[in-house]
């Protein structure tokens, strides 16, 4: 019996050894194409880099690779649109100013961060010209925002007294504009996506 057990153990070790050696020698994917957008490739390394930039810029919470890939696709589509729209220029001084605001670059190369910031500033300029300047707000909309969003949030945070509308009108107006802008961009982006050549690879 003990001979059988020893034999089985040895065989198990042998199999485990072979398995581990084979596993160690197995090729590993270190990078690949994840998507092609209008003949521009997005790789796994691009997604990782974008994640790092977002972390450095303290942009929203952790997302998985698929979510970041979708965001990169959007960025590429926006850049393609910007290329057809003259007059979108970003001052390098503005890029540096944003760069200097970053407390912890988290080991990302400065040029990569600059590129990330430049992209965001260009997109922002583009949306300002394309959409923001045409957005208007009405008193009804601002009142609605105050009643349905600001006041409940202020209550939730324990603010007492809740600031009146006239004290926060400017903030409310800005937020309404931002919401409208986000909505316009969402619709526009959906249309651009529909007309674009996008290929993703599982």
């Amino acid at each position: 019996m003990s001979d059988l057990c020893t034999g089985l153990k040895l065989r198990a070790h042998r199999f485990l050894w072979i398995f581990l050696v084979a596993s160690a020698l197995h090729a590993e994917v270190i990078d690949r194409i994840l998507a092609v957008v209008q003949n521009r490739i997005i790789t796994l390394s691009d997604v990782r880099q974008e994640r790092s930039i977002q972390l450095a810029l303290a942009e929203t919470a952790t997302k998985d690779d698929a979510a970041i890939l979708e965001e990169l696709i959007d960025i590429y589509l926006i850049e393609a649109q910007i290329a057809q729209f003259p007059g979108i220029e970003v001052d390098e001084a503005d890029v540096e100013a944003e760069l200097n605001k970053i407390p912890d670059r988290k080991g990302i190369a400065v040029n990569d961060l600059r590129q990330g910031i430049r992209r965001r500033l260009e997109a922002s300029r583009y949306f300002d010209l394309r959409f923001r300047q045409f957005i208007n707000t009405s008193e009804v909309e601002i009142q609605k925002y105050y009643d349905e969003v600001f006041a409940p949030e202020a209550r939730r945070r324990g603010l007492d007294p809740i600031p009146p509308l006239q004290d926060v009108a400017r903030l409310a107006t800005n937020n309404v504009v931002e919401e409208k802008l986000a909505h316009e961009i969402e619709i526009w982006l959906a249309t651009v996506r529909q007309g674009s050549d996008i290929e993703t690879f599982d």
Binding site: L25, A27, I30, D31, I33, I41, T43
Partner: peptide, 20 residues
């Protein structure tokens, strides 16, 4: 390197494997 291979126009997909 992936970009250079893609730019040849020959390939629709490229994956890079590494083996020690």
């Amino acid at each position: 390197a992936i970009q250079a291979l893609y730019d040849t126009g020959l390939f629709s997909f490229i994956e890079v494997d590494a083996t020690p």
